[in-house]
Write a protein that binds this DNA or RNA. Structure first.
Lengths: 258, 258
DNA sequence: CGACCTTTTGATTGGCGTCAAAATCTGTGG
DNA sequence: CCACAGATTTTGACGCCAATCAAAAGGTCG
């Protein structure tokens, strides 16, 4: 992780033209009538450059976001050792900054991986908006539950899987999430997909060092299970990889409530 | 972990008399008018004996529950090694069995620690009920978000903290959660509280073996930070313990949405 | 009292971390 | 289009935290 890079100041964010609200997963399932309500709630759109911080753990932060395009991540940093734990990778449709702690500050940091386009919503409008739009509230329950599932999977990896199993898992999780969440991914034939995160990111997501991640990835490549270079990853043997990871696609379904 | 014990058959569950719906955190904040609706939704109450399985990963399961009293846990088991990862400790007010995978089966197992009293709700009534009761949906968003926070804290512990830091964290988390969630805990003076989980449970929650947990707990005791015996734990030096754990009470707040 | 948990202790091992440095890649400015 | 700086990947040597294995001691409950 390049900490300097991700600490770029937030002022590098810029507003941009209107976004198509329908694309935001929070509102995707809204009927046309309640969409007007949602339009009124949306505040503005932001473009975040690659590897830029959006907010930091401990900050007061008055907006929450949905990802329109790009990859991001949320993380915590241990104050004694400086070690980073990535809590979730963010893809189009994901929520950022929903959670606050009791004192109203952010319990984790958030940053971009690639350029990120976000739709921003003022936090103080959130609760009234949910109360007025049951469909949105139900959708939000769905999204939060999906986030629980993703986090639990990573906890299982960090706590009880070997490095090889965990890394295989992360790769498959991201492959299926990209398929679900990235509109342009339909053009990914033959199980190859854009993979903009570093080996250090992978390690920080499941509690390993970049060095060890590198050794395991090379092992997976030498076994002919995956291939990767230039931020693009190809899964060569999905069955074998899934077996190692104890993974199945059900585990990353976006909408558990249906 | 005594796997035999937790695999007791589900038939040992018994129905019991009506529970006071208001006590269930899902409905705690309901106005009187929508309470009637909620009453109609509630189905029955169950008593689960200690160390008994409620449902198993991969099962079809048509109910979800809120905890009325007692301690429980949800967990996953690695099919290759049999290792268990505890995903969450369950206390009064917590949800059980909300999540299902894409195929409609449970993505994790659930079991009791102590005797557990649950309120059961039929899953197929959930979505319509949320749609008709925006207050309940908002409350549910809150609860799911709290579960995300708890899981992220454990991920941080499993991935990036030492055994000592993680164990100190778990102890403090449970101390504050019991204060918040267990009605009778007000009688806990001097930072002592009932602590019915085993050292193996602690290890399974943060990715350690029972042997190593034992060594670290003895270390914490010899340093005068905690004392424990007979399923009761006393925090002797909360400041020092919190500093080791990088813990603060904000991290376990029950209702992030306010 | 007896069976089964749970905790405790010791000896040994190993997966992954740490440290260090080289090789390769990537973006940026001249 | 090249050169350079910084980021990322790769490699090797070595060390340690926690796992593993084994067994005894202490608790708990029918």
């Amino acid at each position: 992780m390049n900490f300097n890079a991700i600490e770029k100041v937030q002022s590098s964010m810029t507003k941009c033209s209107e976004c198509e609200v329908r694309h935001s997963s929070l509102f995707k399932k809204l009927s046309d009538s309640s969409l007007g309500e949602a339009e009124g709630f949306r505040k503005e759109q932001l473009i975040i450059p690659p590897r830029t911080r959006i907010f930091q753990e401990g900050d007061q932060h008055d907006y929450l976001y949905t990802v329109f395009s790009g990859w991001g991540l949320i993380y915590k940093t241990a104050s004694n050792t400086g070690k980073r734990q990535i809590l979730q990778f963010l893809l189009p449709g994901d929520l950022i900054g929903f959670q606050t702690s009791a004192s109203g500050v952010m319990p984790h940091s958030a940053g971009s991986v690639t350029e990120l386009i976000l739709c921003a919503y003022p936090r103080n409008h959130l609760k009234p908006m949910l109360q007025k739009n049951p469909e949105v509230a139900v959708q939000m329950v769905d999204m939060r539950s999906r986030d629980v599932t993703l986090c639990q999977n990573h906890l299982m990896a960090a706590g009880r899987k070997t490095a090889k199993e965990s890394i295989a898992f992360i790769i498959l999780e991201l492959f299926y999430r990209v398929q679900q969440q990235v509109p342009s991914s339909s053009k990914n034939t033959n199980d190859a997909f854009d993979f903009p995160i570093t080996q250090e990111d992978i390690g920080d997501a499941i509690g390993l060092t970049n060095v060890h991640v590198n050794r395991v990835i090379k092992e997976l490549m030498s076994e002919g299970l995956i291939h990767c270079n230039k931020k693009r990853l190809t899964i060569l043997n999905k069955e074998k990889l899934s077996q190692i990871a104890e993974f199945n696609p059900d585990m990353v379904i976006a909408h558990p409530l249906g």
